[in-house]
Simulated assay, not measured.
Amino acid sequence: MLMMNRNKEARLHYMANGFRMLSSGDHVRCAVSGEQIPLDELRYWSVALQEPYASPEISVKAALGKR
């Protein structure tokens, strides 16, 4: 029963210093690459756009509008 959220995409609200889970899951998808990001590895996101990124390089490109 503890693994009910395995392979389920979470919905998150991104804040400046973290995120709040709106819908349970174990991963999110990068807004640019579509790559699956496990929640325990999620480090990059945009508060303004409310979207996660798989790497610092991708987050910089998204911030500069170079998707």
Results as ranks from 00 to 15, higher is better:
M1Y: 12
M1I: 07
L2K: 12
L2P: 11
M3S: 15
M3C: 14
M4H: 14
N5D: 10
N5G: 05
R6L: 03
R6T: 08
N7D: 00
K8F: 08
E9K: 15
E9V: 03
E9T: 02
Y14H: 03
M15W: 00
A16P: 01
A16V: 02
A16T: 09
N17Y: 10
F19W: 14
R20M: 14
R20I: 00
M21I: 15
L22Y: 08
S23Y: 14
S24K: 13
S24E: 15
G25V: 11
G25K: 02
G25F: 11
D26I: 02
H27K: 05
H27Y: 15
V28P: 07
C30P: 06
V32M: 15
V32N: 05
V32E: 14
S33Q: 09
S33E: 02
G34F: 02
E35T: 15
E35S: 10
E35N: 03
Q36A: 06
I37G: 00
I37T: 01
I37E: 05
I37V: 04
L39F: 04
L39D: 14
D40M: 11
E41M: 10
R43A: 11
Y44C: 08
Y44K: 06
Y44Q: 09
V47K: 00
A48P: 08
A48G: 09
A48D: 15
L49N: 08
L49Y: 13
Q50N: 10
E51K: 09
P52R: 09
P52A: 10
P52W: 03
Y53G: 00
Y53W: 12
A54H: 10
A54Q: 11
S55Q: 01
S55C: 01
S55P: 00
P56E: 14
P56S: 08
P56Y: 02
E57C: 00
I58M: 08
I58H: 04
S59I: 10
V60G: 00
V60W: 12
V60L: 12
V60N: 12
K61G: 04
A62S: 11
A62M: 04
A63Q: 08
L64A: 13
G65C: 03
G65P: 04
K66A: 05
K66H: 11
K66Y: 10
K66R: 15
R67T: 06
